[in-house]
């Protein structure tokens, strides 16, 4: 599922990141890489989300949150 479809408070695993190249690189530098666990902290109907990844909170707009494919942590393990 897409990142913004996740449930608040749950932890997921990043499956793939499919956004514009420049943004992908910035996300990767921030540690949002494939197989990284992310926790969805908050989200709005519009798709803007707050996630916690590698101990840091990030606010991401919809164009990013819809490009990040996630899996439930349990599925992965």
């Amino acid at each position: 599922m897409k990142l913004y479809e996740g449930e608040i408070g749950k932890t997921y695993i990043v499956y793939s990141v499919m956004v514009k190249a420049g943004i992908t690189r910035r996300l990767e530098a921030l540690g949002v890489t494939e197989l990284t666990p992310v926790t969805l902290m908050n989200k709005k109907g519009s798709g803007t989300v707050i996630i916690k990844v590698r101990g840091t909170r990030l606010a991401l707009g919809r164009k990013i949150s819809e490009g990040i494919e996630i899996r439930e942590a349990a599925d992965h393990e």
Binding site: I23, R26, L27, L30, T48, I50, T56, R57, L58, A59, L60, G61, R62, K63, I64
Partner: peptide
């Protein structure tokens, strides 16, 4: 090219 939100929340 539209900016999209990407900011760290301290």
């Amino acid at each position: 090219e539209e900016d999209v939100l990407l900011i760290e929340l301290p």
